[in-house]
Amino acid sequence: MADKPRRSRPLLRTLVGDVLRRRRLEQRRTLAEVAREASVSVQYLSEVERGRKEPSSEILAVVCDSLRIDLADLLAEVGRDLAVDHAPVLRLDQARLRRAQAPQRSGDVFLLAA
């Protein structure tokens, strides 16, 4: 049996950085504003947002405070992003084949989206 190729998983620090940046931009705030309020350097916060640095729980807490979001909300959003990024993907031709081979039952619904 051939080994399936393993899908790469994003790093947690990348997902955390994406959410922090998204939240900051939603608030129309600059890196400098958030960094100053969180008492971290602009460069460090930039590296966290880009997924180049893995922030400690203390840094995450002060950045979340600066953004006025709960750490739990940050982690929940990271979890949702992770689930979306790793949802199984089914190719359209495979879906059509499965549909053609599946027994027809009354009330079945089949959706193909592109």
Results as ranks from 00 to 15, higher is better:
residue 62 V to H: 14
residue 7 R to Y: 15
residue 103 P to K: 11
residue 11 L to I: 04
residue 64 C to K: 06
residue 99 R to F: 13
residue 104 Q to G: 15
residue 56 S to D: 00
residue 2 A to Y: 12
residue 38 A to D: 02
residue 48 V to S: 10
residue 40 V to P: 04
residue 102 A to E: 06
residue 59 I to A: 15
residue 38 A to E: 03
residue 57 S to A: 10
residue 63 V to R: 05
residue 107 G to A: 08
residue 83 A to C: 02
residue 32 A to N: 06
residue 114 A to F: 02
residue 85 D to K: 14
residue 5 P to K: 14
residue 32 A to S: 03
residue 84 V to Y: 00
residue 73 D to W: 02
residue 97 L to N: 03
residue 66 S to W: 15
residue 75 L to M: 14
residue 38 A to Y: 13
residue 91 R to H: 05
residue 93 D to Y: 12
residue 45 L to W: 15
residue 17 G to V: 08
residue 62 V to L: 12
residue 33 E to A: 08
residue 97 L to K: 13
residue 31 L to R: 09
residue 1 M to Q: 03
residue 31 L to C: 06
residue 55 P to T: 07
residue 108 D to L: 06
residue 62 V to A: 08
residue 45 L to Y: 14
residue 40 V to S: 07
residue 109 V to Q: 14
residue 12 L to M: 11
residue 6 R to C: 01
residue 98 R to E: 02
residue 87 A to D: 01
residue 15 L to A: 06
residue 32 A to P: 07
residue 59 I to T: 14
residue 67 L to V: 01
residue 103 P to R: 12
residue 19 V to A: 12
residue 46 S to L: 03
residue 91 R to G: 01
residue 114 A to C: 09
residue 51 G to L: 08
residue 13 R to N: 06
residue 70 D to V: 13
residue 88 P to H: 01
residue 106 S to E: 04
residue 69 I to G: 05
residue 1 M to P: 01
residue 62 V to M: 13
residue 114 A to H: 03
residue 12 L to C: 03
residue 74 L to V: 14
residue 17 G to Q: 08
residue 13 R to W: 10
residue 68 R to N: 09
residue 6 R to H: 05
residue 89 V to R: 08
residue 44 Y to V: 11
residue 15 L to V: 01
residue 37 E to W: 04
residue 2 A to S: 04
residue 50 R to L: 07
residue 90 L to D: 01
residue 22 R to V: 02
residue 18 D to R: 13
residue 43 Q to T: 09
residue 20 L to K: 07
residue 22 R to I: 02
residue 3 D to M: 13
residue 53 K to I: 01
residue 87 A to R: 09
residue 79 G to H: 02
residue 89 V to S: 09
residue 40 V to E: 02
residue 65 D to R: 15
residue 75 L to T: 06
residue 91 R to T: 01
residue 9 R to V: 02
residue 49 E to F: 12
residue 104 Q to R: 06
residue 12 L to W: 15
residue 39 S to I: 14
residue 109 V to S: 13
residue 107 G to Q: 08
residue 55 P to Y: 07
residue 56 S to W: 03
residue 39 S to Q: 10
residue 83 A to I: 01
residue 40 V to C: 10
residue 51 G to T: 08
residue 46 S to D: 05
residue 30 T to A: 02
residue 110 F to G: 00
residue 9 R to S: 00
residue 37 E to D: 08
residue 30 T to I: 12
residue 70 D to L: 10
residue 110 F to Q: 14
residue 104 Q to K: 09
residue 112 L to C: 13
residue 25 L to T: 14
residue 27 Q to L: 02
residue 68 R to Y: 00
residue 20 L to F: 03
residue 1 M to S: 03
residue 106 S to D: 03
residue 41 S to N: 11
residue 46 S to N: 07
residue 48 V to L: 10
residue 15 L to Y: 04
residue 36 R to L: 06
residue 2 A to G: 04
residue 96 R to Q: 03
residue 66 S to R: 09
residue 67 L to E: 02
residue 5 P to Y: 00
residue 81 D to K: 12
residue 48 V to Q: 11
residue 84 V to N: 03
residue 105 R to A: 12
residue 40 V to N: 05
residue 10 P to T: 08
